[in-house]
Computed example of a mutant assay.
Amino acid sequence: MEVKEKISLANVPKGTKSNRENNKLLEIYNIKKYFPVKKSLFSRSSRYVKAVDDVSFSVGARETIGIVGESGCGKSTLGRTILRLQNPTSGKIIYNNIDITKLNDSELQSVRREMQIVFQDPYASLNPKFRIGDIVGEPLRVHGEGSKNDRRERVQSLLERVGIGAHQISKYPHEFSGGQRQRVGIARALALNPQLIVCDEPISALDVSIQSQVINLFQDLQEELGLTYLFISHDLSVVRHISDRVAVMYLGKIVEIGDTEDIYQKPSHPYTKALLSAIPIPNPVEQRKRNRIILQGDVPNPINPPSGCRFHTRCPLVTNRCKEEEPILTTGSNGRMVACHYPLD
């Protein structure tokens, strides 16, 4: 295992262009994740679900990059593949100058302590038979961190940091609300002092009144601990609030990626523009004036994606070139990366 000098996160500014270019914590190169589809019980697989297909991007230290797109576009699969909870079909994942796609299980364990995940469902992600103290302390026990008393003190400190009293350490998950359970999940992710956290739709299962509290907690923790987030969500308003950059996915591919405000103010890809037109506006008058873009048809089958541009079957600006030639994710005139033959700018 080749290990280079790790990046120092001390005094690294959050979300700046130089930060992304000079302090890349995570680099993804041409990642693919295909799932085989068997024709029958005894036949060999000849087809694949192309959940993630040739995705490349980088994440700077202390940056938050949002991953958005319709359900089934491959957002969660991408997040799990980056952590190697699922092994990629091909491609490279460089974390802190280490190619983790080449690591075996024992080598990967030492890296995984720095890469954690907060799951979508706070009810399913916590073992109902464990007390929350055991749930939060399990990563410490698995990695052999400290004595039993040291681990208990660390767990109490983590619970208090996420807003749960240390006196509740002996309670079971069913004794907490959904928001409190998600805070337990966040405390568990923080146990080993990670640098990167994949947030897999962490607020989608929570009440609206609780969502803002959890988002504020994520931001406070990032400021205090220097965390880097890969924030997966279908809530475009939340992504705008928390992210430095946004990557838009469609049918396993990134179709646009750039600074958050640039994309929200002036999207370059027709799919991005259609997504943003669906964001609710509090003002009913402005909502009626908005040019709502309603895409026709359904998302194509990822087992047999369309030729050319994968969005051409639903794109209002489609041409023959779109049907025949696949666009490459390239930097446009506005400095943003977009995969479209005829970007809107």
Rank of each mutant, 00 (worst) to 15 (best):
I293R: 10
V299R: 07
K323D: 07
Q287V: 07
F311Y: 09
C322S: 04
L295I: 08
T313R: 14
P302M: 10
N334H: 10
P316T: 02
V285L: 14
N334S: 06
L317E: 08
I328Q: 11
N291V: 07
P316S: 02
C322M: 05
P300L: 13
G297T: 02
N304K: 15
I303V: 14
I293D: 02
R321M: 07
G297E: 15
T319W: 11
R288Q: 09
V285I: 15
G335K: 06
C309A: 08
P284C: 09
T331S: 12
S333Q: 15
T330F: 06
G297W: 12
R310T: 02
I293V: 14
I328T: 08
M337L: 13
Q296Y: 09
R314Y: 11
V338G: 03
P300E: 08
G308R: 00
Q287N: 10
R321K: 10
V299E: 08
V299P: 14
T319C: 06
T319P: 14
I303M: 03
V318P: 02
R336V: 03
E325Y: 08
P302H: 14
E325H: 03
T331E: 15
E326K: 15
D298I: 12
N304R: 12
R321D: 03
A339N: 10
C315W: 01
P327S: 05
T313C: 12
V285T: 15
N291P: 01
S307W: 01
R314D: 00
G335R: 03
R288K: 12
N334Y: 04
I303H: 05
N304H: 04
P306V: 13
P327C: 05
L329G: 10
R336C: 01
P284M: 07
P302D: 09
C309F: 10
G308I: 01
K323Q: 13
G335E: 01
E326N: 06
